[in-house]
Design a protein around this nucleic acid. Structure first.
Lengths: 350, 350
DNA sequence: TCTCGCTATTGGAACGATCCAAAGCGGCAC
DNA sequence: GTGCCGCTTTGGATCGTTCCAATAGCGAGA
């Protein structure tokens, strides 16, 4: 509407106070909905606020009150749909609680992670949600973050764990259990020779998923050949590239538990190029249940981790921590759910 | 009133000053790397800063200097990989320039857009990058944002355009040209009966793409039948649903230019259900080049819009605007690139 | 001796909000 | 007239930083 704000200077409490003949303090009370203010006065002030197009300066208020209304969200890779959905969930919940999200991306670089954390901290967030870069060290994070601001670790553990950082909360996925579910499912379908495909060994989530796979295999009395463990970058392209490695060993697997969906979808491509039809001649499973999983050819059996809900959960955990700064730190493991689709066929000979 | 959280006592300039026997002002000069400070003094102060674990309070500085070091990024849908990559590009460039990203998601709701913009504005961003929700009105955005903070519109135009908002910068995709390229490509492949499939007519990007399609058809001397224009929601599911409509008219098309990749992938499903093989019996193109496009069956011919680069560009445009607040507003149209894959086959009879 | 210039340093007033103790005011009881 | 009570309102200090004008010290030139 016809806002009469003079260009070049912000409208402050003083302007409003002067504009309707009350004190700054009264205007402040009105803004905060205090019941001390007389109805008539309030109406006059509110009219003036509207007339001058006042916008609240939360930075100034936070300075005086020594409070903060922002939370930093630091992600290793926002371009990954998994983290994007996570971020959307975080922002949604934070916004509902009146907080604002300070975003930072590290691109899997511990160096940039340091810089990003440092820069965000200067803006005084009340808390931090961090999905660490791959080789990020607990010691370095502690050095820049300090103990003052509560931190929630998401998705990955930090390298070189320090005893002192037990005060950090954690929200992790149940990687081991999930991979175990997938493996058991393949075994139940009749597979005996099952590979573990993709991911890097120095990623904690990959190690956990691999452990779940081994656990299921051994529980079922099945062997795991070393050459059934194929490492590659967690991308489609690299996965497609490494497909032939599956069949280089003495005993070819009939199925593969893949590190994640990206890897599984890449492997499908690689199999096609070898003339193998995934879901018919070879079974595979993924992890994450990204949007593309349901649409693959064939649709991919995978583990749903509900990234949006995880984002909401992460935000809630941080908000909870803010209310009880002294409570013992909390380790949360989010459940994962097996989604059976067509990629996990029985073995061709069965 | 949003809940606010107390933060523990912080180390301030006063603490440092007291700690090494200089004045607050001197410490401030050291922090800002002023050349006025004596080398010895600087060393002493820096040592003390480290010793006490000082963190700069940018909010206080910004208050005093009447500056801002944050930019608000308001997106209609962060869960969409296109916007996620865009956001990553924005954050990357902003961070490099020393700015911090204030994130806000609107979920395609103009109401939430209002709320989110209002909340972010209270934190005093230096500028705003906005990808509007679908039915967002220029009038409403202007009412909450005002003229004080520069705004960059990305990707979509606002409804009910006001003359006054000519001062907003814009970064749009070259929708019309892109759709024209796709259509020309299909024509060059030998198609004569080409449909335009998907999207809503009240979306500016859909209108533009349709215009590009019409332009190419008419330039080539080809007719466009009204029943070759099929509207549906820009989702896979709705697209699959509307596939039969393509063949309901007197003259069946042999190809379709789709509103975007999601729609194209959905149409593929719908065609398959009719026993038509996309890429063999029917040609189609998409728009966006999302990750799944390359992995479709068949891989999808589409238009690449490079969302990450667009994010960098958007950030640069805003930063530029901050340096020249009075410069005339700028409308940028980002180029798109045709990516030819297997979905755009020649017509079966050709 | 006085002034000048140069280098370092500093106290105090901002920035825009909130907090707090104090006060104005009308009515009512004594 | 005085004291006391609620109901509103208010001035001034304060949060952590930066800006500004003022200074102190000190060697050099007149």
């Amino acid at each position: 509407m016809p806002s009469q704000t003079p260009v070049g200077r912000k409208v402050t409490l003083n302007d409003i106070a002067a504009g309707c003949g009350v004190s700054r303090a009264t205007v402040s009370l009105v803004l905060r909905g205090s019941s001390l203010v007389n109805k008539l006065t309030r109406a006059r002030v509110e009219e003036e606020l509207r007339r001058q197009g006042y916008v609240y300066n939360r930075a100034a208020a936070n300075l005086r009150r020594r409070t903060s209304t922002s939370i930093a969200l630091v992600l290793n890779d926002l371009a990954n749909p998994f983290f994007a959905e996570f971020a959307a969930g975080v922002d949604e919940t934070l916004a509902a609680a009146g907080f604002v999200t300070l975003l930072g991306c590290t691109g899997e670089s511990p160096t940039r992670e340091q810089a990003v954390l440092g820069s965000l901290l200067e803006h005084g967030p009340a808390g931090i949600i961090l999905s660490p870069a791959e080789r990020s060290k607990a010691h370095d994070v502690l050095a820049v973050v300090g103990r003052r601001v509560p931190l929630l670790l998401f998705n990955r553990e930090l390298g070189g764990a320090l005893p002192e950082f037990a005060h950090w909360d954690q929200l992790m996925l149940d990687n081991q259990h999930g991979a175990r579910l997938a493996t058991e499912h393949l075994i139940a379908r009749g597979h005996r020779h099952i590979a573990f495909f993709g991911g890097h060994h120095d990623s904690s989530s990959c190690r956990q998923r691999h452990a779940g796979y081994v656990e299921a295999m051994h529980t079922a009395g099945l062997r795991t050949e070393p050459y059934w463990r194929i490492e590659c970058a967690p991308t489609r392209l690299d996965a497609a590239h490494h497909a032939p490695a599956l069949f280089a060993g003495a005993l070819a697997p009939t199925a593969a538990v893949c590190y994640n969906d990206a890897v599984a979808l890449g492997l499908m491509l690689g199999l096609n190029q070898r003339g193998l039809r995934p879901g018919h001649d070879f079974a595979l499973t993924g992890f994450d249940d990204i949007a593309e999983a349901a649409l693959g050819m064939p649709p991919l059996t995978t583990l749903s981790v509900a990234p949006h809900e995880r984002g909401q959960q992460a935000a809630q955990l941080v908000l909870q921590r803010l209310q009880q700064p002294q409570a013992a730190s909390h380790q949360t493991v989010a459940p994962v759910q097996l989604i059976v689709r067509e990629s996990s066929c029985p073995p061709p000979t069965a």
